[in-house]
Write a protein that binds this DNA or RNA. Structure first.
Length: 116
RNA sequence: UUAGUAAGCUGGGUGAUCGCUCUGCAGACAAUUCUGCAGGGAGGAAAGUCCGAACAUUCAUUCCCCUGCUUUGAGCAAGGGUCUAAAAAGGUAGCGGGUAACGCCCGUCAACCGUGAGGUUAGAGGUGCGAACAGAGACGAGUCCCGACGUUACGUCGGGGGUGAAACGGCUAAAUCCUUACCCGGGUGCAAGAGCAAACCAGGACUCUGUGGAUUAUCAUAGAGCUCUUGUGAAAAAGUGGCUCGCCUAGAUAAAUGAUCACUCCAGACAGAAUUCGGCUUACAGGCUUGCUAAGACA
RNA sequence: GCCCCUGUAGCUCAAUUGGAUAGAGCGUACGGUUUCGGCCCGUAAGGUUGUGCGUUCGAGUCGUGCCAGGGGCA
């Protein structure tokens, strides 16, 4: 689980990111990002009922994505709000495959620090 | 031993690294923050939302207060349901018990199924209709065919074939109608509801219409309408659209109870709490315990 | 989370107190008409009535359990 300060919480925040953020797409993941006024990164996750009707599957995807984002947090440029949307198809992948997709996605969005 | 039957229990384990939430204690601090230690942290179905209850609120002439009428202890409401527009609802029902309550549970009788252990069952009473097709004829009648008798048309008696789910016996059928012992205020549901803060001639929500945008994702704007909330002597400007309780010896609020790796075994099914509790229904790999039954073998 | 509603041809809808083959319009296909196309005329295909179990002689219709889709909420 992400620390509290790194979570995107308010409904308003989500609307802002969806409305004004830039979108990036990679295989079964979709990322929306927008700069915020804070010095920290905040992330939210969304898994639709269309991905799977089973709550167990949706919860597992969210947990795995949180772990991936947690590991990446120190490398990400500060001051970004992001939402990761899961698209149907990801539920068949294992952890390594999801991590690979997420890496490509983050590179595409150019939010990783070049120094590391 | 094999096959079966009933009831109950369980629903991988160990370790390493990195994390989340709540409670208590201690310390630091402006703080709802941080640190340390100790402890709690998904299910038998958490599911479907099919019944019932708690709790909250609302309507109310039932509880409380006031007023009125009829009258001597009660009534005059609402809602739901019913309806060929007038009737008065409803109930999932053998019998007996249990429960806060239930359409639930237990015992028992009957019917049916099974060699058996056992299993299954919306199992009261009354009445109407016999509605398609076929058939001569479908609850009130009738004569398609054959035989006998009577004087022909025809009638009486007996028998047979065929149709059909059912063919004269007054039989069977309500999960379409009605009755009844007994019991009962109704609606809305924790997004119920309560409190705090902020703002003002304003703000929010909803509906409709127009315009634009998006199209695996949770839009924006203008006008009109009507209601609700806060609030007002007038005008202008600025600002808020949140938080807390409800809420829990699991108790979050973008929502925790985990992620990865290694070893191991019989290789892990169905599946993730959201106000709480009692049931029902549905999904489900494997393992364990106990009682009983049938067949076979041995003593 | 809580509370509701709806499932019949590709689409929009019918089907009498349960009664036999489940109909109609649009669409589709083929044929005719036309120089060709449209309109028009004719013919045909297309259905496990979402699904299982039950009541019944008989179920789209009655009862019940699932499945799918949709809507509302201070």
């Amino acid at each position: 689980m992400l620390p509290k300060e790194n979570r995107l919480k308010k409904k308003k925040d989500f609307e802002n990111v969806f409305k004004k953020g830039k979108g990036f797409k990679e295989k079964f993941l979709f990322l929306k990002i927008r700069k915020n006024e804070l010095n920290v990164n905040r992330f939210g996750f969304a898994v639709s009922l269309k991905v799977s009707k089973k709550a167990v599957v949706r919860n597992k995807l969210k947990r795995q994505l949180r772990e991936i984002v947690k590991a990446k947090l120190p490398q990400v440029k500060p001051g970004i709000d992001g939402i990761i949307v899961v698209l149907p198809g990801l539920e068949d992948k294992n952890f390594q495959q999801i991590e690979e997709i997420a890496n490509k996605l983050f590179k595409k969005a150019k939010i990783i620090n070049n120094t590391t």
